[in-house]
């Protein structure tokens, strides 16, 4: 879809520019946009597909910025897609290009109150940064569920869920790294005397750095913990081994107590003693109970 909204922002020399919003553009729309903006179509396509490219290009007739916007998946907590968002400034136009609708853009780009070029860029970056924070938090929150399941887990599914969370945090970290790079590079282009922009830039940089530190720290903690998770799962399985080994020992006792009275040799008065069965079986039950009691007190017959 291609939309053009007139006089939506102010250029460097306070002239008004139109906003061309390209959202999941068709091939013909992309061709038309490339011709209008005098930018090679392959350039736009590469950025739309998120291929490796320079996130900030400043040339005489073109400023190009690119970063990833985390978009939560509807109805699935902790799941998100990183949507590449490109911004272009060319004579007469400000262009946004993304394969999905970015909701906050319409709020930030208001033709009634057009903003200056770098102010708008910094505000968009600040908004993108703010999107990273709840996304990272919802991903990290999944750890609580994993840790709850860990208590009973006998299989490595919990470790896999941990690995999946680790991957998602890494994707967020890489997105933030790219954003951090763009913010640091923008500093070179801001008008030197504009204190408002400088402050806005510093605020954005600090906010971004805080979010990245948080994601970094969550991820570092998780990476370290994953090994412990694997050990907890081992330990759960080892508990079962211990329990079953104790059961096998208990099941082995009848092999030698009644077995001693089952030998094909003269057994004295036992074969004719009326209470022989009751005496030996009673002794067996007593030995079993004593052994089970000792095992229980040592924790070998407990599953938790």
């Amino acid at each position: 879809m291609m939309r053009i909204i007139r006089d939506s922002l102010l250029s460097g020399n306070a002239n008004r520019r139109s906003w061309m919003a390209l959202t999941d553009p068709s091939t013909s729309e992309l061709t038309q946009a490339a011709a209008t903006l005098d930018i090679p179509e392959s350039f736009l396509r590469k950025r739309l597909e998120g291929e490796a490219s320079r996130p900030l290009i400043k040339e005489e007739r073109l400023i190009s910025l690119q970063f990833q916007v985390p978009m939560p998946e509807a109805g699935v907590a902790g799941q998100f897609t990183l949507v590449p968002l490109s911004l272009y400034f060319v004579p007469g136009y400000f262009v946004t290009l993304a394969e999905r609708e970015i909701p906050f853009l319409t709020r930030l780009i208001d033709p009634q109150k057009p903003r200056k070029r770098w102010e708008l860029v910094l505000r968009i970056i600040a908004e993108v940064t703010r999107n990273y924070l709840p996304t990272a938090r919802s991903v990290t929150r999944e750890m609580t569920v994993v840790e709850r399941d860990l208590r009973q887990a006998q299989r490595h599914d919990v470790v896999y869920r941990g690995l999946d969370i680790n991957d998602r945090l890494l994707a967020l970290d890489l997105g933030l790294l790219q954003l951090e790079y763009v913010v640091s590079e923008i500093a070179h282009f801001l008008p030197a005397g504009d204190t408002f922009l400088m402050e806005l830039h510093e605020d954005t940089r600090v906010e971004l750095s805080q979010v990245r530190d948080q994601v970094d720290s969550d991820q570092a903690t998780l990476s370290e913990l994953l090994e412990s998770y694997a050990y907890v799962v081992h330990n759960n399985v080892n508990h079962l081994f211990k329990f079953m080994a104790a059961l096998i020992i208990l099941a082995t006792i009848p092999l030698f107590i009644p077995g001693a009275v089952a030998m094909n040799v003269p057994l004295g008065p036992l074969p004719h003693w009326r209470y022989g069965f009751a005496a030996v079986t009673g002794g067996l039950v007593l030995v079993e109970m004593l052994t089970a009691g000792v095992f229980y007190r040592m924790g070998w017959l407990k599953l938790d």
Binding site: P254, L255, I257, P258, G259, V261, A262, M263, L267, L270, P271, H272, W273, R274, G276, F277, V280, T281, L284
Partner: peptide
Amino acid sequence: MPWHMMTP
């Protein structure tokens, strides 16, 4: 096992 015993 108890029923293997050579007792009544």
